[in-house]
């Protein structure tokens, strides 16, 4: 793959922790308007890989390109610029507990982008509005539901004007009834053309959004392709086996639809 054709591109990443190889020669690229979905068994290296892309974890080997430009992570300026332009959504939100929803969104605008308090506030309110939370602007994280927290986290990432967003199991820490509101926001983003790389165990979600599914196991990419091909009835792929086993375990987040070609129902738009 030629990095010039993609917004974000990782080439030949390797990572070991304490001598144990976690990522082996992983390459993934995300282009304009694409949503790539990482799936695979627990411990397969999905989170590690996502965090290598913005150097929250430093890969041992391999390169990351943003807009075709190779990132030199040893250069702090370049590193911080990359992180501004690559949004990240975490499984457990990682909101700043001492700040309101508005403060969570505006603080990096002020400290990193150097915006005035007033401008940062206006932008924060705008972003909270986009995720349906403008009325919760003055609430602290401890006063919000899980779904609301994750939407604040998404607003916080969007406020930085990222070119691409990485999402690490954005719905797996949520109560089932709160998954829908977060999924709706992510769908809206995808529909708006935001390039995304999403790790999830929620197969209906993966299937409905993915322009490509990437199946990862033991630190390697085993399979990748469009969902129609990997999950077609009768396709004998690892991806499909994995879906079936998820269903057999009665995993709540993976719906039985997984192996039918029927699209997942579209959740309603988020309310407050």
């Amino acid at each position: 793959m030629n990095p010039e054709n993609y917004v974000l591109c990782a080439r030949n990443l390797h990572k070991s922790f304490a001598g144990k190889e976690i990522l082996h020669d992983v390459s993934v690229a995300v282009g304009k308007g694409e949503t790539k979905v990482l799936i695979g068994p627990s411990g397969g290296g999905k989170s590690t890989f996502l965090q290598c892309l913005n150097f929250l974890i430093h890969p041992d080997q391999g390169d990351v390109f943003l807009d075709g430009r190779k990132i030199n992570s040893a250069n702090k300026r370049e590193l911080y610029d990359l992180r501004q332009q690559v949004g990240m959504i975490f499984q457990d939100f990682n909101l700043f507990d001492h700040l309101t929803a508005e403060g969570n969104v505006s603080i990096a605008l002020r400290k990193v982008k150097g915006m005035s308090k007033k401008d940062a506030h206006a932008r924060a309110i705008h972003e909270l509005d986009r995720v349906g939370l403008s009325r919760r602007a003055d609430h602290y994280p401890a006063q919000l539901s899980g779904g609301q927290k994750q939407r604040v986290a998404i607003a916080r990432a969007l406020a930085m004007d990222p070119k691409v967003i990485l999402l690490d199991e954005p719905t797996s820490a949520l109560d089932p009834e709160l998954v829908g509101e977060v999924v709706a926001v992510i769908r809206k983003l995808a529909a708006g053309g935001m390039p995304m790389l999403l790790a999830t165990h929620q197969m209906d979600f993966a299937q409905a959004l993915a322009t490509e599914i990437i199946f990862m196991e033991k630190g390697r990419i085993i399979e990748q392709g469009v969902p129609e091909a990997l999950l077609a009835p009768g396709a004998r792929t690892r991806t499909q086996d994995f879906c079936l086993s998820l269903n057999q375990m009665g995993n709540q987040n993976s719906m039985q639809l997984c192996c039918h070609s029927q699209a997942a129902p579209s959740p309603s738009a988020p309310e407050e």
Binding site: N54, R83, N94, F96, D97, H98, A108
Partner: peptide
């Protein structure tokens, strides 16, 4: 929680900024 430092870094904050405006106030 270590996640908050990660959250701050993921927005492009330097470690100094993250410790000063996220970790220390708490």
């Amino acid at each position: 929680p270590a996640g908050q430092l990660k959250g701050a870094r993921s927005l492009g904050m330097s470690d100094f900024q993250a410790i000063r405006s996220i970790i220390l106030p708490q």
